[in-house]
Design a protein around this nucleic acid. Sequence first.
DNA 1: AACGATCACCAACTC
DNA 2: GGTGATCGTT
Length: 829
Amino acid sequence: MAKPDDDIPFFGDEEPRPAPASGGIAARAMAARGADRPAVAYLDGLNPEQTEAIETIEGPVLVLAGAGTGKTRVLTTRIAHIISTGRAWPSQILAVTFTNKAAREMKERIGFLVGQAVEGMPWLGTFHSIGVKLLRRHGELVGLRSDFTILDTDDVIRLVKQLIRAEGLDDKRWPARQFAHMIDGWKNKGLGPADIPEGDARAFANGKGRELYTAYQERLKTLNACDFGDLLLHPIRVFREHPDVLKEYHAKFRYILVDEYQDTNTAQYMWLRLLAQRPEAARGKDGGTGGVNICCVGDDDQSIYGWRGADVDNILRFEKDFPGARVIRLERNYRSTAHILGAAGHLIANNEGRLGKTLFTESEDPDAEPVNVHAAWDSEEEARAVGEEIEQLERDGHSLSDMAILVRASFQMREFEDRFVTLGLNYRVVGGPRFYERLEIRDAMAYLRVVAQPSDDLAFERIVNTPKRGLGEATVRQVHDYARARDMPMLQAAGELVQTDEIKAKPRKSLGDVVSDFRRWRDLMDSTKHTDLAEQILEESGYTEMWQNDRSAEAPGRLENLKELIRSMEEFESLPAFLEHIALVMDTDRNEQMDAVNLMTLHSAKGLEFETVFLPGWEEGLFPHQRALDEGGRSGLEEERRLAYVGLTRAKRRVHVWFVSNRRIHGMWQSTLPSRFLDELPEDHVSVAEMETSYGGYGRNHSGGPYGTSRFDRMGTSADPFTNAYETPGWKRAQKNRTDATRTNWGTRSGHAVERIAYGESGPAGRTIEGELVAKSTSDTPSEFSLGERVFHMKFGNGNIAAIEGNKLTIDFDKAGRKRVLDGFVERT
DNA sequence: AACGATCACCAACTC
DNA sequence: GGTGATCGTT
């Protein structure tokens, strides 16, 4: 086997092996070579299916790996196996993942198996980071210089907005965000401006869709920039238009592995096919093995990215694409209790079009808890109750890091955060609002981008007048127009303009200063350490000073973040390397070692596991998400169900599902119905929480509070909206529990009051609460209240009606101030 | 040109 | 609840 040029020293069959890393499994594996099976130690402890998935090295393989069945172990061991048996150099293995986290984890675990050799795997990464690597080499074939920049969604939207305005269109009527989203969708499908369907092209901006898309691509080219979609599309173009280049990679990548195959979109699929389907293999000249050594690992039940273009069909049609493919199912679960698996399996069985797997576990745990379902009045109480449960678990000796709260939508996080702050409970937001998205970080990055890449107009425009330098809209536009007219970067245009007298004296001076600043910084780039340079730039530009003079509450935090930014640059060797990292790797994993509760969305929970999982917000409209239902119809619902499945299967031992009766959405309180998914959980594996375990104490406290009313009363009413829709035995038991608890604890007086609050004066039968949005379903009905009327709201207390819009009331509350609420939630006093 | 106040609109998630 | 856009003011 010839050693590839870009490989690092490692062992091959003919070469002496370096001393293996001590304790490395590979070391033991090599020592054990020649013995009977398991021939190598790293295959110890694997079940037969896993072993098959690892040892079937030649030819196409699809591994259908259910949740918790050792998917990552199979992938990493397979790679270790390929390397250890000398079938390929580390650099000859292409291993793609979707997230940086997955790539990082895989790299770490391969490191445990093969030691140093993992450092020789340059082609282990996300689709996008590998795309960047390809384009740095071959970008010129599609008109990109090798120092191109990568635009994030924010940049894209700003750019699209400029283009929409340049076309003389109203950017209100045709929102840039929407068009950016459309472009992204086209790119996910592998469509360039010429390829998009006529209907799509006409759908936006009076038929100017295609024109705009073309203009957008043109603009990217002049900016020497790529958006995320281009990181996939450009390599595809290179491969298609330059067979010699493709051939080079065919020879290079002897083994291809794909993680989370069910999440590949069409462009990624095209990309993979180009690399995996070799013409010589098709002609049968490749040693009879079929030649396509591709191994895709995935789980159709965990496909949750349909809305961003992932195509489940990719996994469903694998066998057609790669004839002779071996399909291996991993169904033995090593993570969860039988209760959790039972609940998840029963839920997901409601989906059609599955490849079909049934997870099982062999561990028998007599103490295992069923899945717990809880009800709460509103999201605030939900957060409080979850907080209590967490504290109880903590007192029982569980560590916070073993618990996670998985929400459907990120806005749900705030209430938990608020609660945890009050409790002094450590928490960690995983994948939440990211560091790089912060205003000050983006500003600082813009400075660095202009220095590293003077043609980066988007970055230039962002900071040309930040801090304020007296360069207003008028001046910036002048520079912009000058640049566009001469097809040059704005920085250069600014440099030329200040030589002329086209600009008034004041802005001319500041613009000149900016230009010479950037010139100076740029000259320093080669001679100064990038961290020092960054510090110098922030200092000399007046940017840090701007925040030092800012007396707002956030300013100190922002300065802290800027320091953090400089610190995080340390580990990169150069400014460009750092900028690329930021563009692609948007997470900073700080505080990983702290013991803290994990808070994240269901999407970002995929691939993780926790002892205890809290799943709040199981309500119609939120989960399943209304938008998924509206846009995706049945398949949208199925995707939501898979998301629920992902949530449940994250748990090893305990699951607590919550739903609330009232949730505030867009600042308005809305009544909600429990999610249909609750109904799809099997009774055998579910227990509906008894009142005293989850509601005791604090509910009572509130009944004595300023607003007087207990919050659970509504549930005990005979007209309970849940009754009709939810007939399962488990559900009835839940009703019964609620009823009993209500009656015993709080009596009926407030029950009556709340009943009216919940249904308004028209009575329970008249106004059906229509699941997701009461506001929508009843907006035609004029409100029965009148202006100035004195009303009572159970959360906000007494107030006067200031305005009426259908059934939405604007009320000036005595204590809570002005709020907008639905009329169903207030009563006359 | 800069600033502060008010308003409209939005809020799945990843690279 | 937060943000960006817009308007009126200096």
